[in-house]
Write a protein that binds this DNA or RNA. Structure first.
Lengths: 134, 134
DNA sequence: TGTTGACTTAAACCATGGTTTAAGTCGTAT
DNA sequence: ATACGACTTAAACCATGGTTTAAGTCAACA
């Protein structure tokens, strides 16, 4: 079993060490192992759990909910249904958010098209004026 | 030109009135008109601008950036290129974020599949046990 | 042996994006 | 005339999600 230091774990996920310490304090990284000097040791299991935490964070699940999910994992098999329900609900929340972003982006695209058009028109007028000057 | 009260504008976009007041104070809703009693009047133009602000907000553009964009609109035609560039960059940011969410969601989907499988297996064991009890 | 560099902690600090409160002004219906 | 609801303001307050600081410990290398 390979163990990683906090700096290695942080580098692996491209996040600051301070965030990892913060996550542990919030209960998102329970049962952390330590070496004799008190330094955190990230096992493969911890790395996998951290990956899950980061996926949930990437999809905007609040820390309090991630915590609830982690607590259910610690509780064992009896919470399987709760975890499944939570992930299913979260999935729908994420799909809704992606849909909203996609929809809003369409409106922004209209702006892009219009700005491009207006800038192009202005260039054409310039060109026309230059020709009239001839 | 139809004018709307703050409550009508808020209802139209499903956001609190307090948020509209906050946005105005942040400079996202400039040139607000008022009636004799000092109450805000949302013109069609303001409603359209508010729609743009909300689309940018929905796609997670920070208030400070939205403010910069609004200021450029106020400055007039000379900022067309800046606005176009900003919207293009923002579009890419949003696409990247959607990609990250979609990717992370795929990892969450694996969890959903596994939980579903484990729960199903547990049910099968239960069934098997019930049959052995017979 | 002493001085780096990587780590530790608790607590303070920060940015972002609002929301709530308190006190007051209008317009209108009773 | 008054009471109600819708509005106004400035300022205080709040939640979220970290980041930074200060002071200390430890391992390894010169």
């Amino acid at each position: 079993m390979k163990y990683r230091s906090i700096s290695e774990a942080a580098a692996a996920f491209h996040i600051p060490e301070s965030t990892l310490r913060y996550y542990e304090k919030q209960g998102l990284l329970p049962l952390m192992e330590r070496d004799e000097a008190g330094r955190r040791l990230f096992s493969d299991n911890q790395m996998a759990l951290l990956g899950t935490v980061i996926r949930l964070k990437n999809t905007h699940m609040p820390i309090s909910s991630i915590k609830r999910y982690i607590d259910w994992i610690l509780e064992g098999e009896s919470t399987l249904e709760k975890r499944l329900e939570m992930m299913n609900k979260h999935k729908q929340t994420v799909l809704d958010e992606i849909a909203l972003m996609t929809e809003s982006l369409a409106g922004i695209d209209v702006k892009i098209t219009n700005y491009t058009k207006r800038i192009q028109e202005r260039r054409s007028e310039d060109k026309l004026m230059r020709e009239e000057e001839q």
